[in-house]
Design a protein around this nucleic acid. Structure first.
Lengths: 219, 219
DNA sequence: GGTTGCATCGGACTTTCGTCCCATGGCGGA
DNA sequence: TCCGCCATGGGACGAAAGTCCGATGCAACC
């Protein structure tokens, strides 16, 4: 009885995914989340979730950072990325960051259902029309190493990193997380060590390198 | 007798542009530069330059930041952006940052020549097949304001900002520019004031928001 | 010739950052 | 049950960042 979680900030599209997922499953539960924190919370409450359908553009994540956070904190949960951004380069990066599959937002319900079944069966899914071009693309060593580094961060460290990368002071981060500045500093030091950087600006750049700043600026 | 400057890191393409520009001009001088610092140097030596053909992807600039620097330091020099990235959204942003025109790298020599003549005649040039979609796009207020703020920076302040946005320490910036750390601090304070930010991480983010392609997919 | 803007620095200062010790309590796996 | 990881903090400290006063020289511009 598989457990699914649909993470997308667009209610309409969430519903469409829900329907396609229902068609793919004989039984099982399907949860929903509308932003990244809610997604992580939902997974914290349901660690036995089998698969997350993750939109790349949600409040709290402008690109691969959401995927990285999710993979880092719940490595056992498979993630299928859902995005309108179906260029081979994007798919390549998504897979390099640990996603089990990729669905284009223009895919048919049948294709989505097939993708879900494949991934739930521990397979990997790439849209048929992109398979060749994705396979032909080399993995960017920068991405691979970055994924490995980010995977070492703990949940709280991800949150600190996210706020830090917005330019907040340690004190402000402390207020947001309702902890002491002293504790934030401890996390920051740990983050630097794990990411191999020496100050917060560099850490911020590293996280930003996960942005898929679509030239299209679609939002 | 117009003065042109071609700024592109690809020698072959530089030559092609050179030839197209020659065809557009009866007389006049045509200079070349292969990276952003060289471009700014060349303009410093030739402030009477009429037009720069600027590639968006050059060493020293991954996106609009090169255009911003150029427009900020030499507001009297027209800039025609040359890029393979010919989506309407990109053209829109390029124009919002003060470019006088845009040429796709897939344009024919005839079209390039026409574009150069138009811009030298104080006109604005957008590829014919993109004109409508670009005009339909709204200017991003974020981009407009950012362009205005960046335009207030001086040349040295741009250099400091660029190094700062790479995560360097004040001391390292000082060494790179062969000045004292004390002077770097003075620049940094001025940069913050002009950009309306309060620390270097925020300044770095502001500059990064000009990037057009995902940093990991470096050519 | 005066003004304005820029770049260069100096001293002294406060704030923030980042690191080094250390300790506590919780929680899950071996 | 014990061990290890995590989150939480405390004290102290040096380093870096950032601000406030000031100054000089230089070049451009009217």
């Amino acid at each position: 009885m598989p457990r699914l979680l649909i993470a997308d900030d667009h209610p309409l599209f969430r519903a469409a995914l829900h329907q396609a997922a229902r068609a793919a499953l004989d039984e099982g539960s399907i949860g929903e989340a509308c932003d990244l924190p809610a997604t992580l919370d939902a997974l914290g409450n349901e660690p036995d979730t089998d698969l997350v359908l993750l939109d790349l553009h949600m409040p709290g994540s402008r690109g691969l950072s959401g995927l990285a956070a999710l993979r880092g904190q719940f490595p056992a949960v498979a993630v299928m990325v859902v995005s309108a951004h179906d260029e081979p380069q994007v798919v390549r990066r998504v897979l390099d960051h640990g996603a089990a599959g990729f669905i284009s937002k223009s895919a048919s319900p049948d294709e989505i259902a097939a993708a879900i079944r494949t991934v739930l069966d521990c397979g990997e899914w790439v849209p048929p029309h992109l398979g060749e071009s994705v396979a032909a693309l080399p993995s960017d060593p920068h991405d691979s190493e970055l994924a490995a580094r980010l995977a070492r961060l703990t949940g709280q460290q991800y949150r600190v990193l996210g706020l830090l990368a917005e330019g907040l002071l340690n004190k402000q981060i402390a207020d947001r997380l309702a902890i002491q500045e002293r504790t934030v500093k401890a996390h920051v030091t740990a983050i630097f060590e794990k990411l191999g950087v020496r100050n917060r600006t560099q850490a911020s750049l590293l996280l930003r390198s996960l942005d898929l700043v679509d030239p299209a600026r679609v939002d």
